[in-house]
Nucleic acid binder design. Structure first.
Lengths: 207, 207
DNA sequence: GAGCTTTCGCTACGAGTCGTAGCGTAATAC
DNA sequence: GTATTACGCTACGACTCGTAGCGAAAGCTC
């Protein structure tokens, strides 16, 4: 997860329990202290490991928090709810529930801010968080096309553009609602949002 | 701006030049160092003022960066471009141009992350940044209703809900596109986005 | 078991930043 | 002139950082 295993077959293996303890301690510290006041020494104490162990596994605070927050998004799923509208509403509510947690709020935005000046960090975020969400968009779209709710797009370039647009609109709206506006993305809001988005998409696909 | 002037009529007044120098130095440091490596001592040196002067005016790094970033959004305007679509495209492009600057990217997201654990900071961000953008949404909507492009909404509660939704969709999509996806919100993207949004809004208002 | 390899916990360290206090000086209002 | 406030400067203890070195522990191979 955090560092490549360079084919080290011999020697004492790294404690997997330490990994989970460290990541859980990181989330706990994020809740209590927030990003700026979180220190690696404190995380090590909470996890019951030595500070040096942390530095042996992660390059720094950024990488550690990315991994700790990424685990929160593992629970994202997209079960078939029968219609595109229901699928969107379901996954948006899941996404909103994750973002409602304090460790996600402060942690996620902070690492995104740092990633604007660190290409490696940006790539790490993309691989462990963004990519997974993008797959959900692709899955939901393919499902809707099978149902006939969305027309098939033959041009791969335009298709990619549409997927990117949908992704930014969905994830961006939920994030902005939760973090900037500071209001809950509850069922009422999600219903309104899904309605506008679907009408826009079907209308744009009409011509 | 940063601290209330408690009716202090006598004594040496605060240097206004120092204010602008400090805020400019803060943005410069944001570009070169990013949020996490930015130190108040460094900003003071760049601005040519003593470190103590900084602490006399701002409570800390968060408040300073909010003020420094807020000035970037002063240039947001909403000239009448003749149609709702043109108005939206214009202001979104302006917004995207601001967010493309490195000082806005790293600074804005960082203070938003911090604001999740600091109510006073959240209020400060709302007053100096978010509120101004919200006014643009209201202005554009009123103009579109005069043109007949959007129906008037009599119910004030539902009207407020719609405005909030539009605001989160517009600002959220641009921010997510620029900062998370890491792709430019160029004219092509803005055109696609505006099309979907407008179709969704007019469709949602139809019934 | 013996021996090798890697990880772990612990301690200590210099370097850097924080936010504040104290002082003398500069600039304005009355 | 005098009062009042802001300013620049220095110094300070407290804290965090990231690293180095050490002995002990845990696993693999033979």
């Amino acid at each position: 997860m955090q560092s490549r295993t360079p084919a080290s077959r011999t020697g004492r293996p790294r404690s997997a329990a330490a990994d989970t303890a460290i990541l859980a301690a990181t989330r706990e510290a994020l809740v209590e202290l927030g990003w700026s006041k979180l220190t690696l020494g404190d995380v090590a104490t909470r996890a019951g490991v030595a500070k040096t162990t942390l530095y042996r596994r992660w390059a720094g605070k950024n990488e550690l928090v990315v991994d700790a927050v990424a685990e929160l998004f593992d629970e994202l799923e997209l079960p078939d709810r029968g219609s595109l509208a229901a699928d969107i509403e379901g996954v948006v509510l899941q996404f909103a529930a994750i973002l409602a947690r304090p460790e996600a709020k402060s942690g996620l935005m902070a690492v995104v801010a740092e990633s604007t000046r660190d290409d490696a960090l940006r790539e790490r975020i993309r691989d462990s968080i963004v990519e997974r969400q993008m797959c959900l968009v692709l899955e939901g779209r393919a499902r809707a096309q099978l149902r006939g709710e969305l027309p098939p797009e033959p041009d791969p370039r335009e298709s990619a553009r549409t997927v990117d647009l949908i992704f930014d609109m969905v994830a961006g709206a939920v994030v902005h609602r939760t973090l900037v506006s500071g209001k809950p993305a509850d069922e009422e809001w999600v219903r309104d949002f899904t309605r506008v988005l679907l009408l826009g998409l079907s209308g744009a696909a009409a011509d």
